[in-house]
Design a protein around this nucleic acid. Structure first.
Length: 371
RNA sequence: GGAGGGAUAGCGAAGUGGUCAAACGCGGCAGACUGUAAAUCUGUUCCUUCGGGUUCCAUAGUUCAAAUCUAUGUCCCUCCA
């Protein structure tokens, strides 16, 4: 069972420090969770994740439901055993796939009709089914089945969607058995404060173990995203874990910690890695660029990850260019390390009460005003 | 020695009289990616002062018009001796 404890609140911002206890181990928040949709963080082994310092990782209900099937994972002894990962695992509910795979006409009160992206079969996912799958998977943190909507969205639609997401949250909660798992409700409501507030307050009445902020990073600009997050965290209880779903841009991590978020997940460190991009202190670089062909310096001089300790831009560039998987692995290690390390710095700055200065310095370096 | 086939942009390869600066693939160059249908997708890739200029092995022709037709040459491939 995952237990969250709030340890410290920043007096200047909404930033907080806490711990997540799991199996006798403690992980500090705010933290970043790498994404392992198919029960693996693409290209990386659990040992590598451990070396990087990752805590919770994320897996996906929809994908594991299709393959290999949640029953198979259950028979394997649960996700931890199946994938040999002994840290905490959070499963997404399939709610994001409502946004990325389903069409509006496929969404009904009962649930969502999907076309299996692997073979075209018609599938139907309901709030109860999503919870049931996640309980079979045996993840530690379970997400309510929600509707993640795009941006911009008409207010009338958002109103209906929020009500449906609330009804779905209730239905999921009603069938959820606590055992060794905890269940989160997801705050939706688009960019409308009253809808976010209403959604948050209704979820809090249902008393979830933690709360997610959903419906961000779906095409909106950054100020809008920050607004959406602020409108959500403002109405959530302080003693419960808050998870901002799908956000991983470095500056977004900083800004949203300052708005009271404890955990984040995002595919970008691993996806960007596979596409040859790397985060550095001085901004994101595309290692494939020809200017790096004879650059025998590390990806980031200030980084001490496995990749930066042993390999050069020229070498990683070469690996990516010839499509060797080791290149994707090295950059995945680097990018996850970068975000993990960023979270560590964030925690240190919360402790020191210097989040705003940290944010300003970070922006200067990352966006080049400091070079 | 004889008989065929072929030479197209960095490479491979379409096109066989005008709609061709020339399909498509690769390679090159760049961009995008946020609860992963994503080791994917998009743009671009003769020169240009953006008006245009110069191309389809070479040269000479036919034609209003040639990468496409004719002649000669050069080089390559296959088969027969």
């Amino acid at each position: 069972m995952v237990e969250f404890e709030l340890k410290y609140k920043d007096p200047n911002t909404m930033a907080r420090l806490g711990t997540v206890k799991f199996n006798g181990k403690e992980y500090e928040t705010p933290m970043f969770m790498p994404v392992g949709t198919n029960a693996t963080v693409k290209t990386l082994s659990p040992e590598e994740l451990k070396e990087i310092g990752s805590g919770i990782i994320l897996a996906n209900t929809y994908h594991l439901w299709l393959k290999p099937g949640d029953e198979v994972v259950k028979h394997a002894g649960g996700l931890h055993k199946f994938m040999n990962y002994d840290g905490p695992i959070l499963t997404d509910s399939g709610g994001y796939q409502v946004f990325s795979l389903a069409k509006p006409k496929d969404i009904s009160e009962d649930g969502v009709k999907f076309k299996n992206h692997l073979n075209g079969d018609e599938l139907f996912l309901t709030p109860e089914k999503s919870i049931n799958i996640q309980q079979n998977l045996g993840s530690d943190i379970v997400m309510s089945f929600d509707e993640c909507i795009g941006w911009p969205a008409e207010r009338k639609y958002v109103e209906e969607s929020v009500e449906r997401t609330l009804r779905w949250a209730k239905r999921g909660k009603d069938v959820f058995r606590h055992d060794n798992q905890i269940l989160f409700g997801i705050v939706q409501g688009g960019e409308y404060e009253d809808l976010r507030r209403h959604c948050a307050e209704e979820l809090v009445k249902m008393d979830f173990d933690g709360y997610s902020v959903g419906g961000t990073s779906v095409g909106e600009d950054k100020p809008t995203m920050y607004k959406m997050v602020g409108y959500s965290t403002k109405y959530l209880p302080e003693n419960k874990l808050r998870y901002l779903m799908g956000v991983g841009d470095p500056i977004d991590l900083i800004e949203n910690v300052m708005r009271g978020i404890d955990i984040f997940d995002c595919v970008s460190p691993t996806r960007l890695a596979r596409h040859g991009h790397a985060y550095t202190k001085y901004g994101k670089i595309n290692v494939k660029n020809s200017k790096y062909i004879e650059d025998f310096t590390p990806i980031d001089e200030t980084c001490d990850c496995y990749c930066c300790r042993h390999y050069t831009k020229a070498y990683v560039r070469h690996l990516i260019n010839v499509k060797e998987t080791f290149g994707a692995r090295l950059l995945s290690i680097h990018n996850i390390y970068y975000l993990t390390n960023l979270m560590k710095q964030i925690r240190e700055n919360i402790k020191k009460g210097t989040m705003e200065e940290f944010r300003n310095e970070f922006v200067k370096d990352y966006y080049g005003e400091n070079k």
